[in-house]
């Protein structure tokens, strides 16, 4: 189902080719500067690819980019949360761009990620870890098949990291795929978990 071919990106990534199946997670444990973020952004279509193609469900993603985007969830370094909005408002405005959503679904998602703060607290008053949880709730609500996660467990304690892993595992068990850049590696179910330690593995 999920087929990815990817090739040649500026100085960072040369002639890379990899594929990701349904229900599969690929964790990139590459050293700093090896191009993890570039790869994720290239796959998301945020960085232009010098040559080669990104394919999703067998089709070149650039031909119907909007359709590809609706299958895609990208969580970058910047969480795209507004400090002057509450957690619930943030989710309402950002998830609402993609699909229809009601208040009950939002508070359900916030509870599921273990946001302990009141949901009408402004996001800038939350700790970094709590903000990550809000972003995680948004990820779940997006309901996308392909997750591109850039350091999803940064700023999280052990419990938080376990929670991220749990969310990803649930996503995989629904047949979703995930491409994850990470420092420490997340504990995911072994059957569908692939680890990569350097870009050369895909050359």
């Amino acid at each position: 189902m999920g087929l990815h071919l990817w090739r040649g990106e500026r100085h960072v990534l040369n002639g890379l080719s990899l594929r990701l199946g349904a229900g599969e997670a690929l964790q990139l444990l590459w050293p700093n500067g090896a191009g993890k973020t570039s790869l994720l952004r290239g796959v998301a279509g945020l960085l232009p690819i010098e040559s080669g193609t990104v394919r999703w469900k067998g089709a070149d993603t650039s031909t119907d980019y909007a359709a590809y985007c609706s299958d895609l969830a990208y969580l970058g370094h910047d969480l795209a949360l507004k400090g002057d909005l509450t957690a619930a408002e943030n989710l309402r405005y950002s998830v609402g761009l993609r699909r229809q959503i009601d208040a009950a679904a939002i508070s359900g998602a916030l509870q599921a990620v273990g946001l302990t703060a009141p949901h009408d607290e402004l996001v800038r008053r939350l700790s970094a870890g709590q903000q990550r949880r809000v972003a995680l709730a948004r990820l779940a609500l997006w309901d996308a098949q392909l997750w591109l996660l850039d350091e999803p467990a940064a700023n999280l304690d052990a419990a938080g990291q376990a929670q991220v892993a749990e969310a990803i595992a649930a996503h995989l068990s629904r047949g979703g795929s995930a491409l994850i850049s990470t420092h420490q590696g997340l504990p995911l179910p072994a059957a569908f978990n692939r680890l990569s330690h350097s870009p050369q593995e895909f050359a």
Binding site: G45, A67, C69, S70
Partner: peptide
């Protein structure tokens, strides 16, 4: 632009120009 919201606009599946 700074907090990543524009990136999410670009990936929302909606027309970016419209947003």
């Amino acid at each position: 632009g700074r907090d990543g919201t524009l990136e999410q606009f670009a990936l929302s599946g909606q027309s970016f120009a419209w947003l």
